[in-house]
Design a protein around this nucleic acid. Sequence first.
DNA 1: TCGATAGAATTACGTTGTAAATTTATGACG
DNA 2: CGTCATAAATTTACAACGTAATTCTATCGA
Lengths: 204, 204
Amino acid sequence: MPKILTPDDVEQFRERLCDAAEHLFAQHGTDAVTIRQIASALGVSTMTPYRYFKDKDAILAAVRARAFDRHAEALENARAAPAPDPEARSNAIGAAYVRFALENPEAYKLMFDVRQPSEGDYPDFVRAAERSHATMTAHLEDLAAEGLFAGDADYVGHLYWAALHGPIMLQLSGLLRPPLDAQTLIAGLTAALAKANITQPVSA
Amino acid sequence: MPKILTPDDVEQFRERLCDAAEHLFAQHGTDAVTIRQIASALGVSTMTPYRYFKDKDAILAAVRARAFDRHAEALENARAAPAPDPEARSNAIGAAYVRFALENPEAYKLMFDVRQPSEGDYPDFVRAAERSHATMTAHLEDLAAEGLFAGDADYVGHLYWAALHGPIMLQLSGLLRPPLDAQTLIAGLTAALAKANITQPVSA
DNA sequence: TCGATAGAATTACGTTGTAAATTTATGACG
DNA sequence: CGTCATAAATTTACAACGTAATTCTATCGA
């Protein structure tokens, strides 16, 4: 019998390939990177990646999922870190979100890239995206358990998510001019949310 | 002497080409559309578009600029329309923004597509994008002139912009699950902004 | 009528994603 | 210990792409 790839071998190669792809994406832009470049960076032939991924779209989905996973990890670490009080922990989670986005703009753009047509075809991506956002909801549920927040944790979590995501995307789209930037807008939006203390969906 | 294209001829052909390209983009996705398809839809040869646009990127920039222009027009119409009171006019402008985005999701995605590397190369696009956002600031300056708002119009305009853009982008990225949607989040964020009445950049 | 020439069409080429065919290397078995 | 079936990798091949270079066509001043 010939050599057989263990599931571990497969996973390891996929990791290496995604690492290489991610670097190339960040360096040259997602569209400019070819399968041939990725294969060459790994020292394998052009067709070898096809043994590990269905096609180029599957590679893109895998890289996006990995970016979401790293993002989720940053949030989870912030949530797990010691904090003097719950408010400080809230701020730490928000700061971790923003820091990840601004320090890894190419990864963040990729995560929320709106072109992948049917994300349902890539369950790994969907799971990673859910995991990332779940931390924010979980933190609000912590606050609720401590009696510091009463309301719809999912809804309010999404409000804060949108309050971070909107400014970040405007900045990454190149549409903010000094002195405006994502941080300044996020400060205003989160201050407004905290002050208004919205807890339930408001009727339009 | 041979036939000579007047500037009007050129402009007319560009319009026709952008119309065709936009339809194809919305139908098949931006990436799947080829120059050959666009040319064929116009009944011209493959290379004819190159007489009117430098390359494919220039076509994309032109289509994006046109989308921003239509968006700006929708906002300007809402601002110019009669309204019972200033608050109603504010709501009408916001509603026009959201309606455009949700009724033309492909156009909206294109406008804020984060891939075009150096938008500075396309001054028409930059101008259209500025025009779109200027309406919101202008409306706040109207309010200020009437004594109904005192604060940094540019900053607060951007706060509302981000409060609309964030939820819309989350929805268009396919990351909102029922019962959550862009409208519900926008209602919460704009309610918070109105209630908190932020007027100046808040210090982090 | 005719020829110079702007604009359109045709041809051509390098590159892409990937299907199909071929080669290579492994490990159980006579 | 060689041999062979076969998984994995490579090589080859091809249609389609963006676009440069070339050729054709139709117009208008002479």
